[in-house]
Simulated assay, not measured.
Amino acid sequence: MSYKHNNLMAMRQNYWNDTHSAQVESEKQFFQQVLIENTIYPTPSEDDAKYLFFSLPSIIIVKGYALGFKHGTVQAMIFKHLQTHKTILQHKSDIKIQFRM
């Protein structure tokens, strides 16, 4: 694993494990709602939302940290990710994420 990958994984884990921030809790519910709206899962659990979150490309994670995951720009990127990987997400398969520099 590269240094960059380790830092992004730490960012993901720190975010997801944050139970004190009202914003983070709200965004976790947002991820569940997004899964419903995009017909990925009819009644997604928090684990389903976590799976989605950990499947997001690094650019979405970085922008989500900076702007918030409910920001319009970030939402558009999340929706595009969902549409591109809908079948894979429904089956909870591994997603190969390509990095863009």
Rank of each mutant, 00 (worst) to 15 (best):
F69H: 00
D48E: 06
F69P: 00
Y41H: 09
R12P: 02
Q98I: 07
F31D: 03
S26I: 03
Q33L: 09
D18K: 13
M101W: 12
S58L: 05
P57K: 05
K50G: 00
I59E: 14
I60C: 05
I88K: 13
A10T: 10
M101R: 14
S93D: 09
S26M: 05
P42Y: 05
S45T: 15
P42F: 04
R12Y: 03
Q13T: 12
Y41W: 06
S58D: 15
D47W: 04
F54N: 02
G68C: 10
G68W: 09
S58M: 08
E27Q: 15
P44N: 12
Y3K: 13
I95Y: 02
K70Y: 06
S21N: 12
V34E: 15
I78S: 00
Q32S: 12
N6M: 07
V34F: 03
N17G: 05
K86M: 09
Q32Y: 05
E27K: 11
K63E: 15
N17S: 13
S45V: 04
D94M: 11
L82P: 01
P57Q: 04
Y15D: 14
L89P: 00
F99M: 10
L56Y: 02
G64W: 04
V34D: 02
I59W: 06
V74G: 04
I78P: 00
F79I: 15
Q23S: 08
H91F: 07
